[in-house]
Design a protein around this nucleic acid. Structure first.
Lengths: 242, 242
DNA sequence: ACCGGGACATGGGACATCCAATATTCTGTT
DNA sequence: AACAGAATATTGGATGTCCCATGTCCCGGT
């Protein structure tokens, strides 16, 4: 191997090479102090700068796009993306669906993590909740009740409810995570052929949670969330084991 | 034939097309009832089956690889991947570094989420912890103490400690999330120019947490974790606001 | 009979070169 | 001044070609 190859990247495993390329692009963004919304060099410039073919570069760029690092606009250019973990939902969702074919372990894990997050953070959210935000939660519950009465799908309304529960924390990361979990969770009933989100009990629990939050009862709110997710967990477990 | 393909969802943005292609591949995996470790068709077969060029297909495949859906082995083939969210760390980590650069709010959000997760799940972990797992935690604390005494870097040891705390739950999703958070968190001190993980107080807190876990005191363990992360939060907040 | 090395087949990795699709920007006409 | 269409820049996608990594298998040596 004394033949010191001129090749930029040594003969590391292919996976490592691709990741290295991605890292290089990210470093380039950080080095040039680009911020969200700023344009990146064009594909041609980048492929030249990094010494790789445009096609190889594009593979990395698409990955970065999927990871939510950059935004690619056809015919215009590439830009540093604003925060959003949405893309991760695809991978997670796929994995959960795959797991549901066996014993649903991943789906159950997802619910467990979500339970810990929501019941663990509700206290802090109650602390800094404004009257308007409380009213927005009330509104979401009311919408759920109406949809449930009409027998319509209320998964989206439920998501909005949970989202608004934690808006006071002003924590984008948490919001993104909740969105991801929700988008995965929303596919579970369809995959299992169950329809539990429409149950009147579910709506009632949400109403109770709202009441607890409104009365600033952190312990009760946390408990209710716990039982809510516990119920979900049990239902999924039942269907899967059947 | 492929030429006169009327392109079902043609007029959607290119982004949507790429995502659709990824979905098609995932559907294909699910339809064929492939499980983790099973081989996928070759790139050529897939590009033929899906009616796209091999290059385009590869872009999607690389994305799926990054999302942890498939595993690509050079010269051998592609396989349905076992669980691993490691790749997601790249995106998260990048974004956090981007935000640390000016505001550091995301760092605070990250710590908050981590606090909720760990203090919310420690109880369940204590419930199903074996003697061996407890011993492993003890070992991790001891390692931290030794490293701290020697004045060496103990971030990795700290990560191992937290990881072992939640091993009893056997929740891969949680483990992956903790890894992600840790990989981001480990970059915070460097990015902000602080060096707090080496403090003797930190080690002492970890020892106390171990003691609480060993005595099955869920409440105390959760409290200690809370204060631990709260301390972190305060230190980061100081540096950021300075 | 057993072991090892090398040829071979398979399949992913990388690149160059087209051309198509599309968003922005400029320009010319009204 | 305002609008329509052309020019341009940039990404999207397809194809062909070659390279290289990995696994398999045969064949020869021991």
């Amino acid at each position: 191997m004394a033949t010191s190859r001129i090749v930029p990247q040594a003969r590391f495993s292919a996976q490592a090479r691709l990741r290295a390329l991605q890292s290089e692009i990210m470093e380039l963004i950080l080095d040039r102090k680009l911020e969200a919304g700023d344009p990146l060099p064009t594909e041609n410039e980048l492929s030249l700068a990094l010494g790789v073919g445009r096609n190889t570069l594009r593979e990395s760029l698409k990955v970065l796009q999927a990871l939510g690092v950059i935004e690619i606009r056809h015919g215009f250019g590439m830009f540093v993306a604003p925060s959003n973990l949405e893309a991760l939902a695809d991978g997670l969702s796929f994995r959960s669906r795959l797991s549901l074919r066996h014993r649903g372990v991943e789906a159950l894990q997802l619910i467990e993590v979500r339970r810990a997050l929501e019941s663990g953070l509700i206290g802090g959210s109650i602390d800094c909740m404004t009257a308007e935000q409380l009213a927005a939660i009330d509104e979401a519950v009311t919408l759920m009740e109406e949809l449930a009465a009409a027998g319509e799908d209320m998964i989206a309304a439920s998501a909005q409810f949970h989202r608004r529960l934690f808006e006071p924390l002003d924590n984008e990361l948490l919001m993104s995570l909740l969105d991801v979990f929700w988008s995965v969770y929303s596919k579970i009933p369809a995959e299992l052929g169950m329809d539990d989100e429409g149950l009147p009990e579910t709506v009632a629990v949400h109403r109770k949670i709202y009441a607890a939050v409104a009365s600033k009862d952190k312990t009760l709110a946390a408990e209710l969330l716990d039982t809510h997710f516990d119920g979900m967990r049990r239902r999924v477990a039942e269907v899967v084991s059947a």
